[in-house]
Write a protein that binds this DNA or RNA. Structure first.
Lengths: 172, 172
DNA sequence: CAAGATTGAGAGGTCAATCTTC
DNA sequence: GAAGATTGACCTCTCAATCTTG
């Protein structure tokens, strides 16, 4: 990601140059996003784990479920929205089930399909965790920008990937 | 992350409301970033793996090394810049060493400290991979924004986390 | 003993193979 | 046989314990 610096090395190394380098604007936009995302995401994961005993992964699954009008989703769709492989979502739901946060019930209409639903306890725990989520993301990112910045960001994401902000059926 | 929707459920469930919800601007800025980052990052990882046989993790370590004027860094600093735990960077360097991309040499001044350096072969492989990196990130993100967007993004990252764009000593 | 680095155990992910239901 | 979901083998990260050097 960074530009290569010509080191005043004594050896005459015949070194390959950086190919098709980013412009400084491209570089700033991309590296900044990587770093800010990494920092905020890790802080969020740590804080959720510390205060509620589950991480961003479990939080993401539950928040996806609560978004559904019926509070339940087929495990396949759930996996797609979380950007997880079939095995990944299967294991994740497994852990959440053991923790009593979600239930898996066979779809009565199709014995192959499984419906994953939030338990009442899961909903309570999720609501508690949302306080942490909002606080951490505000502290580490949102509160440091003004309203105009936020609006611009939202527009840019939507411009870069239509549906990124609005579509409910989207990974993450 | 999404807003809860009041479902017209027949049961009178006494449900906890979403606490301190995000404004719609906050929501768009944050969810958009999560989704765009996830999509671009995964595409990049897959493409690097497919074309060069190593993923974003290995790429990140090598690009961090090449940034250093001497092309080598103490393994500890390297881990911090990559946002990896001591064990994480240790294992990562282990893999890269076996692949012949980096070397680990004991620091002559302090027998406890290890210096990790890019091999000539590693430098060549990195330069090749950079082409993929630039192409994928441009295709999936940068090219969909105009120059003004990019400038604004860079300014916003720097505003949210001073040093995010400029500082070399920073995770990721 | 303190700092730097590695190793063992365990969490959470992927792909390929398998099992079940349509 | 195809679709939906799980399981086995393996990979990579983290934390805690350990080894080594100052």
């Amino acid at each position: 990601l960074p530009k290569s610096s010509k080191s005043p090395s004594p050896t005459t190394v015949d070194e390959p140059p950086e190919p098709e380098p980013f412009t400084s604007d491209e570089f700033a936009a991309w590296r900044g996003m990587l770093r800010v995302h990494s920092t905020v995401f890790r802080a969020l994961d740590r804080q959720l784990q510390a205060e509620h005993g589950f991480g961003v992964d479990a939080y993401g699954v539950m928040i996806t479920l609560v978004t559904s009008p019926t509070r339940q989703l087929p495990i396949g769709s759930l996996g797609e929205q979380r950007n997880l492989s079939p095995s990944g979502i299967s294991r994740s739901v497994d852990r959440l089930t053991r923790a009593g946060l979600v239930t898996r019930t066979t779809n009565p209409d199709d014995g192959r399909s499984l419906l994953v639903g939030l338990t009442p306890h899961g909903l309570v725990r999720l609501r508690e965790a949302q306080v942490t989520h909002h606080r951490v993301v505000r502290e580490t990112l949102l509160a440091r920008l003004d309203e105009r910045d936020l609006k611009r960001l939202g527009r840019m994401w939507e411009k870069a990937m239509p549906g990124a902000v609005t579509s409910p059926a989207w990974p993450l």
